[in-house]
């Protein structure tokens, strides 16, 4: 082994090690670069992006009306059967029999958030909710009914 190469190797090695230590040392003395977010404390400030896929929801207006006609396209398009649409027949003011939803059941525990139900809905009745704290103690709580009790179909939506 030649001596110069040996010493050169040592010096090169030490320089490379010091370079690495400079990087970590830099972050050590710069606490401003800490990126941790303290979650439960910042809950109030925490705002999800508008596109965030939290859960599937059915928006209702002030008069407790939704847009779901109960056509069942979302149920058909769901790849893993997380949506069940239970329909009933209602008689409207004109005396015609019409299909309406009884329950729009959404299984959050089976949902893979593929967005197909929302994309394919012909009347835009479904939307993403920004709720992300889904942890519950009982699995049955993850099965949700999306239409609120007593809600009606919005006028003008067929």
């Amino acid at each position: 082994m030649n001596v110069i190469g040996y010493i050169k190797g040592i010096i090169k090695g030490i320089i490379s090690l010091i370079k690495g230590m400079m990087v970590t040392g830099h972050y050590f003395v710069h606490p401003g670069k800490i990126v941790t977010q303290q979650y439960p404390e910042n809950r109030k400030k925490l705002e999800m992006f508008t596109a965030f896929k939290g859960e599937v929801t059915m928006p209702h207006n002030e008069a407790n009306e939704h847009k779901c006609t109960g056509c069942g396209i979302c149920e058909m398009n769901c790849p893993n059967g997380s949506i069940e649409v239970i329909t009933k027949t209602e008689v409207n003011e004109e005396g015609k029999k019409k299909r309406a939803i009884d329950k729009h059941i959404y299984h959050l525990d089976m949902c893979t958030f593929c967005e197909l139900c929302i994309k394919t809905c012909p009347s835009n009745a479904l939307a993403w909710g920004q709720e992300f704290e889904h942890a519950v103690f009982d699995r049955s709580k993850l099965t949700k009914v999306l239409n609120k009790p007593g809600s009606k179909l919005m006028k003008g939506v067929e």
């Binding site: 970590t24 040392g25 972050y27 050590f28 606490p31 670069k33 800490i34 990126v35 941790t36 303290q38």
Partner: peptide
């Protein structure tokens, strides 16, 4: 704490 500061974290708090 030290490793947390090096790694841009807060560490136990």
């Amino acid at each position: 704490k030290i490793c947390a500061f090096i790694q841009c974290r807060i560490g136990p708090n």
